[in-house]
């Protein structure tokens, strides 16, 4: 018996699962906004970013609960989205001789699964880089000074290979969001046709803002390290 067989049927239909993907996705958008705002503290200097990290750590058990909740949302989003993608692929076993597209949606929609999987790979690396690693010691040393989390970010994103991977990953996040935000209003049954078209524009703008916001950090660090010299 599958895990979903015990749930009432109306909770396991494709429409219900799309709804769960949309709601978990919206929660993740909230997380991305808070994460990006916190990251931008790097421009204010080591004391601000490190103080923020210290404040987070001081939450203690609350932080554990928040992380568990975030993990649950991530797992729900990924498991259901992959499950639906498999279900959808199975719905047409023989494809067409010519595949053409006429709808108004573009690459972001077509490559949703791939941008999502790219993000998953990135998140795993990102967690081992910054969350699971000690924020002190040799990795945090910049110019002979231990700068804590700030130093760790500085050293890791100052590595051009990591920086490029980071930028590619946040661009795929932007692509993912530029479809997701326009799709969510349909899945949640929120907007009229005109409202949905406006949401498509807003989604594109949000995708660009998020991609630029996150990529500005490694670009800033690389510029400082290799061109301008020094750190903030």
């Amino acid at each position: 018996m599958s895990a979903t067989a015990v749930l009432p049927k109306r909770l396991t239909s494709t429409v219900a699962r799309e709804l769960a993907v949309a709601i978990s996705g919206l929660l993740l958008v909230g997380f991305i906004i808070s994460h990006l705002s916190a990251n931008l503290l790097i421009y204010l200097g080591p004391e601000y970013l490190n103080a923020y990290a210290e404040n987070m750590r001081s939450l203690g058990p609350l932080l554990v609960v928040a992380r568990a909740g975030l993990l649950a949302v991530f797992v729900t989003h990924i498991v259901l989205a992959v499950q639906l993608a498999k279900h959808n692929r199975k719905a047409r076993s023989q494809g067409y001789a010519i595949e053409t597209r006429h709808g108004r949606k573009g690459a972001a929609t077509r490559y949703m699964l791939y941008s999502g999987l790219m993000l998953l790979a990135f998140i795993l690396l990102h967690l081992t880089d910054f969350t699971l690693r000690s924020h002190e010691g040799p990795n945090a040393m910049v110019g002979g000074e231990d700068l804590g989390l700030y130093g760790l970010v500085w050293n890791f994103l100052g590595n051009p290979i990591r920086a490029v991977f980071y930028i590619v990953a946040v661009c795929s996040l932007g692509l993912h969001l530029s479809h997701a935000i326009s799709s969510v209003v349909v899945t949640l049954g929120w907007l009229s046709e005109n409202g949905t078209k406006r949401a498509e524009l807003a989604a594109r703008a949000a995708g660009i803002v998020v991609a630029l916001g996150f990529s500005s950090i490694p670009i800033y660090i690389l510029l400082k390290t290799y061109v301008l010299g020094g750190h903030a």
């Binding site: 799309e18 047409r92 006429h102 709808g103 349909v186």
Partner: peptide
């Protein structure tokens, strides 16, 4: 049948 992932091909 599959689920809707909002490609808008149906409408077209």
């Amino acid at each position: 049948f599959g689920s809707c992932s909002k490609h808008y091909e149906c409408e077209a």
